[in-house]
């Protein structure tokens, strides 16, 4: 495993921990999109179907369990926990996430590397992950009042995607036959979705002012 990949996984892990910290400790999910969190739970559930059938490494299995467990518990907190539920900004989180699921499923059925159930589900999860952040970005844009933890959560998620791109470039040059257009194009699309947010995040940090997004 190269350094970019490890750093990517770690920023992904940090983003989840930041979100759990906010929800579990402060008992608030203000500014967090339940739609995005539900999409992530679906992403991990469909991607890690191999968790009990293909052993890759202890690291791999443990990380999969963490991402599955954290994504489902975040959804549980936001839907069922009395205090957390109350801080959920339901009126602004209106992105119809079903509209993302169906096109991704159709695309996975059309474009994949192997036509097997596991591989099509895996491909679906790759496509869905690329667009799953959209409800969150729309919510940030609508509320415009972004607290530090929410900003950091989205920042670390974006950092994770950028580092994975560096990881693919590294692997392309160091491993024979490492060519995966599906992952690369989806990953690139996903990273580009963060570009706007990154621009405002970094300029607010540089100027030492509170993060706001333009309407």
């Amino acid at each position: 495993m190269n350094a970019f990949r490890l750093a990517g996984d770690m920023t992904h892990l940090i983003s989840v921990l930041v979100l759990l910290l906010k929800i579990h400790t402060i008992k608030s999910c203000a500014g967090i999109s339940l739609k995005t969190q539900e999409l992530y739970a679906l992403v991990f559930a469909t991607r890690y179907l191999d968790i009990f059938t293909d052993f890759i490494s202890l690291y791999n299995t443990v990380m999969k369990l963490i991402f599955l467990g954290s994504s489902f518990s975040i959804v549980w907190y936001m839907r069922r926990h009395k205090l957390v539920q109350r801080s959920y900004d339901k009126d602004h989180d209106t992105f119809r996430h079903q509209l993302l699921v169906l096109p991704c499923l159709i695309l996975a059925l059309l474009i994949h590397e192997q036509f097997t159930f596991k591989e099509v589900m895996w491909t679906f999860s790759i496509y869905l992950e690329a667009v799953a952040i959209l409800p969150q970005l729309v919510l940030l844009q609508r509320t415009r009042n972004i607290d530090n933890l929410t900003g950091q959560y989205v920042f670390f998620l974006g950092a994770y995607r950028s580092l994975y791109i560096l990881n693919w470039i590294y692997r392309y040059f160091t491993e024979p036959h490492y060519v995966h257009w599906i992952t690369w194009i989806s990953g690139l699309v996903q990273t580009l979705l963060y570009a706007d947010f990154f621009y405002y995040y970094i300029s607010s940090w540089k100027n030492n002012v509170k993060l706001t997004l333009p309407a």
Binding site: H12, D50, D54, I56, S57, N60, K64, W122, N167, Y178
Partner: peptide, 10 residues
Amino acid sequence: HRHYDYHDEL
């Protein structure tokens, strides 16, 4: 074989 070389990513 190439098949699982990218499934090691999370």
